Computed example of a mutant assay.
Amino acid sequence: MIHTEGLTKTFHRKKEVVEAVKGIDVDVREGELVAFLGPNGAGKSTTLRMLTSLLEPTSGRAEVAGFDIRTQPAEVRSRIGYIGQGNGGGFSYRVADELHNQGRFYGLPASEYQRRAADLLAALELDGLGKRTVQSLSGGQRRRLDVALGLMNHPPLLFLDEPTTGLDPHSRANLWEHIGVLRERYGMTIVLTTHYLDEADSMAERVVVIDHGTIVADAPPAALKRDHADDVVTLVVAGTPGSPAQVPDDVTRVRAALAPVVGEVGGGAGEPGRGGSDGPGDRLHATVGAGGDVTVTLSTTHGADRLPEAIESLRVAGLSVRSAGLKQASLDDVFLNLTGRSLREEAA
């Protein structure tokens, strides 16, 4: 559905040259939902604007829905829907009129664009609002109208640029529910940019991470978290009552008890494990608190498996676990490890 080779975009601002996109090679298959993640200025929106033929690339090539974005922009535009970051409806215009005008732009006969407008208003829970002005709608209703405008031509490919920015959590969930239903109905391919990591994690089959105008990772969310971030298991193990001289022995006992779970692990934070078929990348760190308890943190790609195994190994060794916790890897951890920045902080 999308194929790009060496796509670049350079802007000239006075004497400054800004390389917004530095060579994007990406393929999107028919029916996929692909999310582009990256901080502000990473090149996400510029890439989408090139793929939708709104910006001409500086170099490289791209085919969208089977047509070249440089030489066949009209063919590309007739086969896509594009929902930008701003609201698409004119504030003083009526909702139904905006949809009808969109249908006219695509050359649809009156009977067809009226039918499609009515269907989309019903599907997006906007029925009864056709005579209202756009400015009288709530934020969530305006965004759903934007989706309706983007779907008037029944596009096989839909671009969503930050579709839920500014919406409250309920409106965000509601919008995604509608998009999911419409995606199934029309069999659409969807490409989106978002700052909301939960959207990318739960909705996208693939996540493309862009930083400084280049793709730094491209994989399903689960694979990205497995390859570029760790789960963290935290255990608090009861220490031996008595003299502080016992403390080194407690740490040694805890580490020995956990060795079968994580393999032979190093003595400090960040030291890679070297043994065990399942845990060559596991890292264990043990410290003693003021009360004598041993706090263990285990960084691993298998946190959900390691936690019960670790508790059982400590129990068999005669050690008592006071508390246990698991922090699973997130896409923000992935982005932080890949770029040195937190996407949540960038969004804020």
Rank of each mutant, 00 (worst) to 15 (best):
G340E: 01
M50W: 10
I190C: 09
G86F: 10
K131D: 15
W176M: 12
A200I: 04
L298K: 03
R77H: 12
R115I: 12
F11K: 01
R322V: 05
G281R: 10
G292M: 13
Q114F: 10
G266N: 02
A62N: 14
L224V: 03
K22D: 08
A20K: 01
E30M: 07
E162I: 09
R322G: 00
A118M: 01
V191H: 06
E30S: 02
G38T: 05
V294W: 13
T240H: 04
V254I: 03
N174G: 09
V208G: 04
G325I: 05
M188L: 07
G31S: 01
V216Y: 12
R274E: 04
A256P: 02
P248S: 13
V334Q: 10
L182V: 14
G279N: 09
I190F: 03
H228P: 15
V247A: 15
R13Y: 07
P156M: 10
G276E: 11
E32P: 03
D227N: 11
G38V: 05
D97G: 13
L224E: 04
M188A: 07
R344E: 12
A117S: 08
H12S: 10
H302L: 07
G292N: 15
T297S: 09
G150I: 09
L7G: 00
T52G: 00
T339E: 05
D161H: 05
A348S: 14
L124R: 13
R13E: 04
I80N: 06
D282S: 09
G273A: 04
S171R: 02
L48P: 05
G180H: 06
L343T: 08
Q114I: 13
D25R: 02
I179N: 14
A238I: 05
Y93S: 12
L307I: 05
G84N: 05
A257H: 00
V64S: 00
A229K: 00
T47Q: 04
D293N: 14
K14V: 08
R255W: 13
G279M: 11
E264Y: 05
A257C: 00
E205F: 11
R70M: 00
G242F: 13
S171D: 06
G263K: 03
G213Y: 14
Y106C: 03
D227E: 12
P272W: 12
R79Y: 01
D27N: 07
E184G: 11
H285T: 11
G84P: 06
T10P: 00
S342N: 13
E184P: 00
A35K: 02
K9W: 13
G89Y: 15
G90R: 09
S59V: 04
R115N: 06
A259E: 05
L197K: 07
N337D: 02
T52E: 00
T47V: 10
